[in-house]
Simulated scan of single mutants.
Amino acid sequence: MARHTFTFQGGEELTTMGASWFVSYCYYKKIKSTHLNWRKPSTYTNRISVFGRTQNMHKYYLERVLEMDITNLNKNRIDLSGIQIKEMAKELLEKW
Rank of each mutant, 00 (worst) to 15 (best):
E94T: 09
I31C: 09
L92N: 10
N37D: 08
N76A: 04
K32G: 07
Y61E: 00
I31F: 02
I70E: 14
Q84S: 10
G82L: 08
M88D: 14
V50K: 08
E12V: 10
I48S: 07
T71A: 15
L62Y: 03
G82T: 08
I48R: 04
N56M: 13
M68K: 00
N46L: 13
N37P: 01
M17I: 05
E91P: 15
A19M: 02
W38Y: 13
E87D: 13
D79E: 05
N72W: 10
A89N: 13
G52R: 15
G82E: 10
G82V: 07
Q55L: 12
L62C: 09
T45R: 11
T7Q: 13
F8R: 00
G18N: 02
L14M: 01
W96S: 11
G52F: 13
T16V: 12
K95I: 07
N76E: 01
G82Y: 08
S49C: 11
T54Q: 04
V65G: 06
L73S: 06
F22R: 04
R47F: 08
T71Q: 12
A89T: 09
D79M: 06
I48F: 05
I78R: 00
K59I: 08
N37S: 03
E13A: 14
F22H: 05
T71V: 15
E12W: 14
E94M: 11
F51I: 05
E67N: 06
R39G: 06
L36E: 13
K32T: 06
Q84H: 10
A19E: 04
M17F: 04
S33V: 02
N46R: 14
V23C: 05
M17H: 03
T43R: 10
N56Y: 15
R3H: 03
K30A: 12
E67K: 02
C26D: 15
M57P: 08
A19P: 08
R53C: 02
L66K: 02
W21D: 09
K40G: 01
E87T: 11
R3D: 11
K59A: 05
L93G: 06
H58P: 07
E13Y: 08
Y25E: 14
T71Y: 13
D69V: 01
T34M: 08
T15I: 01
A89M: 06
G11K: 04
Y44I: 08
L36A: 12
D79K: 05
F51E: 04
L66H: 02
E91S: 12
W21Q: 02
D69Q: 05
A2E: 14
